[in-house]
Each structure stands twice: as structure tokens, then as C-alpha cells.
Design a protein around this nucleic acid. Structure first.
Lengths: 323, 323
DNA sequence: TTGTAAGCGTTATCAC
DNA sequence: GTGATAACGCTTACAA
């Protein structure tokens, strides 16, 4: 491969001068610049990025770590990547499949100087383990976390969740079932709080959160449809924590012969493509902006050129699964 | 940051010996190995991967290039990434948004030694332009291409398409409309051929391919539903080239009051999650295996340890949009 | 079995 | 304005 020395030789200058030309750095006379540039052209020269990274101690590469690629995560990955590319960063995708060891491998990439920063969408290890890697570079997460060194693009979903519950109430629903993703998570705890406040406000009897815990996937949603079919007394609405769950529930319920919103109502969460396709009422909370904010936060840690994060908000998207 | 010299100093050996220990390379006495290992432990040392890459002239990094992340591409990205990780490779994701310049930037990453190989899912530049980059490393694509230097995991979709058409015929459909993605593409040309053969076989009058060209997205599928609503004489089936198109068509048609398969039939292509959710009959052609094969081909070009690609095949998945 | 030293391709600090 | 030259952190002949 042709390198700086080759260019220097052809152009009749030193490699220091070549470097100056390439990087527009320091004083170079017009004439030498031209000589160098034509040599670059002639030899079809491109600087070796490994050498630059080694020298500079930075790679202009950021890692995205996630357990797998769900539709929601796709939105995050896509918008983060686009934002990063726009600022000259390159993005590495690392899938952990929820294996803490694989996550560790990914974190090690930052320690071994292959990554300048990390967007850890969903973690697998303890926060304390992850925290110990922040000394090698910035880590931003999508999850809710209270840590002095890990930033988060999380927004408390209390308000968003309440938005959905109020909509159900306004449309006559009084026995609402909440499908929670993981009651140990702070995110879910906010939802539970919103539900409890809501029940108190309208004098309804809340159901225990434990009854519907760990409902996460499309399949889980489908199971709920079957569960519903077996109930004597049926609830009149489901409030979910993701469009995926809502999609599974809605599509399976239709297969079982139910019609929505006549038989019962369902509200999703995320406003991803699938909720549009299945006409599911949902809560939008601008995931794409979260992704961009994640990049901005990492960028601000790495670069002097600061980017200001955008404000996030909730919107209720009324479709055909609620009255 | 602590480096080899530091370890060497602490362990009382030369950095060459440290290297041997780290890489299990060459003869090292048990006792020195232990000294080195404890020094590594003590200083919490990790080798700098930039230095290794520079020295070795390879990065163990492969790029995935795609215009954006659709659901189908997600399957490709996911399985490729997992296969690559399993073999110790790291994966870079580069989104081009169909901008040839951005694709060029991504290809340049290989030229500048940041990438060892590339999985170019869908291209934006001319094949000849892309070919010129194969001298810097292997390029494998998902698209159909006849090139001496670019490999492809493509499979001719003639058989798969015919599978769908025959199914429609068997269920009484006689006026079938084909929604093509891009009639200039070889892939589509195979579909057209299958359709023509099919028409001749059953003595049906084929419609011109130009009538339904460039139908690619969910939105395009939705438009077709509207088009259908305005027709006096309605076709009795749609054969599509992707589940996305089928999904848009089916969901919009339902919104417009049609019921499937009573009013008409629809067959998708890909068998991605969405076709399951919407109960769309579709053609499966094991995209995940294609992704794995793509990695294997790149690996085989890069490494001495050869991996054998898997055979691919088509399966008709009958669901609720055909009789 | 271990050490020396050249080199991978840059950048950046000095001189001149 | 430009050129030496010393890093950056590692691998690998070649010696010893």
C-alpha cells in the first residue's frame, strides 16, 4: 500500500509536509501543496486510519450495544447512526443476546481503544460493572439509571402512561389491565405509580402489578389474548408497555374472533411502524429524538463542539383499538 | 494508559516476551509467563487494538452497508452480525440513505484500512465503481450481480415466485396482479419470467410489468389498496415482491372495508414478523441463512479457516390472505 | 527461552 | 515554510 513516504518521495518533500497538506495544518507554500496534491492523485493515496488512530489515541468510532434488534431498537440504531455519521463518526454494532459476557466484550472494545464512546441501549450487567468502564470513555444509556458517570436519554414515562389511562377512562373503560414489562425496573415503577394515582383519582380498585409482569414480546401479547379468552369476567381495556405486546395481543385477539374496540380496548407504547399497520392507539415519545440526544451527549463528552439536546414529549396517537 | 513496556518493566522481561505471553506465541518458560501474567493483572493491562491493527494490516472489522434499516434488512444485519461476532469480528454499520456519496464514504473505509471486508446489502453506485474497491478487500452483496470480483448471496427468485403463483391458481385466482419492485433489476426480471411462464402454462393473458413498477414500501402497498377501490373490474389476487408491500396493501384494504381472502388474495415475500402478525400468506426464503452465508463468504476470503455456506430453499407459508 | 531492534503509517515538536 | 525525528503500542525476524 502506498503511504506518506511514497508521496513525499514523489513530491520531493518530507512526509511532515505531506501531513500538513493532507490535514490543512500549518504553513505550506502554494507550490509545494500542488506538488503534494498531484502526487496524492497520481498514487491514489489514502491515509491509513489505523496509524492515525494510534497516533491520536482516538478512533472516531462509537459502539451501539443492544441485546438484539427489535423494531424499537431499530429506530434507536438508525437515528443514532445517522447522527453519528453526520459528525464523521463511524458506528459499531454489538449484539449481546442478553449475555453479560458478550456485553463485557463490547465494553472491552472501549478499553482497548477501539471505541471512543458507547451507546448502551439495554444493559445486561450490573450498573456498577458498567460504571467501571466509564473511565475509558463516555457511556450513555436508553434505560433509566441514577449514576454520576453514566448518562441516560431516559424520560420518565409517568406522564405518557397517564395520558393513555385517561384516554381509556374518557371512553368508558373502568376495568383496565396493565401489562408490565418488568416490575423491578424503574421505568415500570413509574407506570405503576401512574396507574395507582389514576385509580385513586377515579375511585377504581387497582389490580396487583405482579399479575401481569414480564410481558415483553409479541408472543407474550398473543398469550394474553388466549388468557383473555378463558376469562369469565373480562376486562374492558389493556394498557401495555410496548407496541410489540399490543400488536401480539391485538392480532391474536382478532384471530380468536374478537373485534376491537367493541369487545375491549388496547393502547400500545412507542408508536412504531407496527402500531400504524395494525391501527393500534399508542403513545408516541419521540424515540428518534432520544437516539439523537444519545449521540449528542456522547459527542459533547468527546468533542469541544457542543450539541444541544432536544426536548422530548408525549403524544397520544388515537387509532382503532380505542373508542 | 498502561502499555507493554510498563508490563515488561514490572515483570522484569522485554516487551517481546510480554507479547509472546499475551498471544500464546512462541516459547515462554512457565515462570516468566507467570510473572508477566501477574503484571498484566496488577496493572489492569489491555493491548491497544489500534497498534495491533496497524502492525498486522488487518482490523478484524467488517462493514455492513445498507440504505436504511427495513425489517428485512434487520434480519440480515442481525444474523450477519451474530455470525461475525462468533468468529471474533466486529461489525460496522453504515447507512447510506441511497446516497451514492455516502456509500463511497463507506467503501473508502476499506481503502483506508478500517475495514477488512464489506457486506453491501443494497448498493447505490454502479457495480463498476463498487468493483474497483474489491482490490482493498472482499465485497459480498445481497443483490444479484454478475461480477468476477463481487460475490452475492442472491438466490434466483423464479422458483419462489412461481410457488406463490401456483398457489393462487390452485385456489381459483385467474386475474393476478404482480406488484414489482423495480423492473430493471434482475431479481424482478426473474419474477416477470416466472409470471410469463405461468400465464402461458394456464393460458392466461399477462398484464404488462410496467403497470405496477416501483412498488416497494408499506406506503406503496397502501396506495395500491386505494387504487383497487377505484377500479370497476377488480383483480382477484396480488402477488407482491415483499411482505412490506403486502402488509401495506392488506392493512389499508381492511381499513377500506375489504375482507381477505374473500374479496381478493395477497401473497407476500420474505416471511418477516409482520407477515405473521397480519396473517399474510408469504414465501420464505431463509434470509437469515443468506446473512450467514454472506459472512461465510467474506470470512473465506479473509481467513484460512474455511466455512461452508448453507443451501437455501423456498417455502410457501399459507396464512389467511389466500384461500 | 529470551532480548534487541526494525518497522507498521501517522502526527507533532523542534530546529533551521 | 520545511525537514528531521521522536513518539504512538505492538509484532516479529534475528541474535544470543
Amino acid at each position: 500500500m502506498t503511504n506518506m513516504k511514497d508521496i513525499a518521495k514523489i513530491a520531493g518533500v518530507s512526509s511532515a509536509t505531506v501531513s500538513r497538506v493532507i490535514n490543512n495544518n500549518g504553513y505550506v507554500s502554494h507550490i509545494t501543496r500542488q506538488k503534494v496534491e498531484s502526487a496524492v492523485e497520481k498514487l491514489d493515496y489514502v491515509p491509513n486510519s489505523q496509524a492515525i488512530s494510534l497516533k491520536k489515541g482516538a478512533t472516531k468510532t462509537i459502539g451501539i450495544i443492544a441485546p438484539n434488534i427489535t423494531e424499537t431498537i431499530t429506530v434507536l440504531v438508525k437515528n443514532f447512526t445517522l447522527a453519528a455519521q453526520k459528525k464523521g463518526y463511524t458506528v459499531i454494532l454489538y449484539l449481546t443476546e442478553n449475555d453479560p459476557k458478550k456485553e463485557l466484550n463490547a465494553l472491552e472494545l472501549m478499553r482497548s481503544k477501539q471505541l471512543d464512546g458507547i451507546f448502551l441501549i439495554i444493559r445486561s450487567n450490573d450498573w456498577s460493572t458498567i460504571e467501571s468502564y466509564t473511565k475509558y470513555g463516555p457511556i450513555v444509556t436508553w434505560q433509566r439509571v441514577k449514576s454520576p458517570c453514566i448518562s441516560s436519554v431516559f424520560i420518565d414515562q409517568y406522564d405518557g402512561y397517564l395520558l393513555g389511562l385517561e384516554h381509556l377512562y374518557a371512553n368508558g373503560c373502568r376495568t383496565i389491565i396493565n401489562l408490565y414489562s418488568d416490575i423491578r425496573r424503574l421505568n415500570t415503577k413509574s407506570r405503576i405509580k401512574a396507574y395507582e394515582y389514576f385509580c385513586k383519582k377515579y375511585d377504581l380498585t387497582p389490580h396487583s402489578p405482579e399479575l401481569f409482569n414480564n410481558i415483553n414480546s409479541i408472543q407474550d401479547g398473543e398469550h394474553i389474548a388466549h388468557w383473555l379468552a378463558n376469562q369469565e369476567i373480562k376486562p374492558d381495556a389493556f394498557m401495555t408497555s410496548s407496541d410489540a405486546v399490543a400488536a401480539g395481543l391485538v392480532s391474536q385477539a382478532k384471530r380468536l374472533g374478537y373485534s376491537l374496540p367493541e369487545d375491549f380496548s388496547v393502547i400500545g407504547f412507542d408508536n412504531i411502524e407496527i402500531s400504524h399497520l395494525l391501527d393500534i392507539t399508542t403513545i408516541d415519545y419521540s424515540i428518534h429524538k432520544q437516539a439523537e440526544n444519545a449521540f449528542k451527549m456522547i459527542n459533547n463528552d468527546l468533542s469541544l463542539q457542543k450539541l444541544t439536546p432536544e426536548e422530548l414529549d408525549f403524544t397520544l396517537i388515537v387509532r382503532k383499538t380505542t373508542k
